[in-house]
């Protein structure tokens, strides 16, 4: 199995739905993400039997039960480690990791980091709802300062992690953002799948019970164009119907928003998005919403050799010209033979 051969098959949305009753709260953003994934899979063209969804623990981690594929609902925070073993055992599988802000950045932050730095070929969908849903509403590592919750009745005081910045800092070669009800989400998923290597997707997800509408400030349909910057490779970073853009403040070395007059974005100094520009990616993931629009879409995409391919290559090289003679191996080293006459070398 030295060559990875993509297994493709024509399917429809129905082929990716299981007979299991979906058990998220009515109105949960997870429904929209599930539909987006089920709708995208036929377009990607992979075969369900060759697809594996692996999750940890949390609301998002129920996901595998609802996909008519192979699925493994594992333990809290460890999905990346299971995925690593599985992909090393069979690199032909199309592996998707489903995790959340608690699962993937709190208890499992370590594994997320190492999976990304190793660059295992898989898609990591991190559903960020800035709250612990399944344990009934405690604040999470992405909750904003001051979040009141059962465990922080006076408001949380610790600073939140930024998932996309974390991923890029860990060495990610693909970082994207989307949100649950966005029509663009399937395109983000397709781009992630097309990327060979660890593709990290932060998906903002509305927890309607414990953190309702926490992303409304940028995700609300009304006025969305003023607050969302959808990045496209090779296109200027424009928003607000082309009247505003993102430019580099060359003196202070940071990004700034600029007004674009009469569509002349070049004159305004608006940057053209290059998904392979790592320096700009670092600035994009750090762009604070409010002062800036929310950067969405593919922020960074520049592939490198994948972990499982390198492992298989090294294994193959080490096996080159050798035979697996176990009996011979047992006899290796310092041996002696005992005969009736006594031992000899």
């Amino acid at each position: 199995m030295n060559q990875v051969t993509p297994i493709t098959r024509a399917t429809t949305l129905k082929d990716w739905e299981t007979d299991q009753e979906v058990r998220w709260c009515p109105g949960c953003g997870d429904y929209a993400i599930l539909k987006a994934v089920q709708r995208t899979m036929p377009e990607i063209g992979t075969a369900p039997e060759n697809t594996v969804f692996i999750s940890g623990i949390g609301c998002s981690s129920r996901f595998p039960y609802y996909m008519e594929t192979y699925g493994f609902h594992t333990i809290h925070g460890r999905a990346p480690a299971f995925a690593t073993g599985l992909k090393l055992a069979n690199p032909n599988l199309d592996v998707w990791i489903v995790t959340g802000d608690g699962d993937g950045l709190s208890i499992g932050g370590n594994h997320t980091m190492h999976l990304i730095r190793r660059n295992l070929d898989c898609q990591i969908m991190l559903f960020n709802n800035e709250i612990y849903g399944l344990t009934k509403g405690q604040y999470s590592p992405t909750s904003r300062v001051g979040t009141t919750s059962p465990s922080t009745p006076y408001g949380s005081v610790d600073r939140p992690a930024q998932p996309a910045a974390f991923a890029l800092g860990a060495g990610a070669r693909f970082v994207a953002r989307g949100f649950d009800v966005s029509k663009e989400l399937p395109n983000v998923l397709k781009a992630a799948h097309a990327h060979k290597g660890a593709a990290f997707i932060e998906i903002f997800q509305n927890c309607i019970v414990y953190n309702k509408d926490v992303f409304e400030d940028f995700a609300a349909p009304k006025g969305a164009e003023d607050r969302q910057l959808w990045l496209k490779h090779g296109e200027p970073m424009l928003y607000a119907k082309g009247t505003k853009g993102i430019a580099l403040d060359a003196d202070e070395l940071h990004l700034k928003t600029v007004d674009v007059v009469d569509g002349d974005w070049e004159a305004a100094g608006v940057i053209v998005h290059d998904v392979t520009n790592r320096s700009v990616a670092h600035m994009l993931v750090e762009m604070r919403f409010g002062e800036f629009p929310m950067a969405l879409g593919v922020l960074y995409d520049d592939p490198r050799p994948t972990f499982e391919a390198d492992v298989w290559r090294q294994n193959a090289a080490a096996r080159e010209g050798k035979t697996a003679d176990l009996q011979g191996l047992l006899k290796k080293g310092q041996t002696w033979t005992v005969t009736e006459g006594g031992p000899e070398l």
């Binding site: 692996i54 493994f72 594992t74 333990i75 460890r78 990346p80 480690a81 299971f82 995925a83 690593t84 073993g85 599985l86 992909k87 090393l88 055992a89 069979n90 599988l93 370590n110 594994h111 980091m113 190492h114 492992v311 294994n315």
Partner: peptide
């Protein structure tokens, strides 16, 4: 195939993942 994992937990979880495969 040997894999030096990031911790003891990842070591066993990767082994279970491989068994699953």
């Amino acid at each position: 195939t040997t894999f030096q994992a990031e911790d003891e937990i990842a070591a066993i979880c990767s082994a279970i993942g491989a068994s699953y495969g």
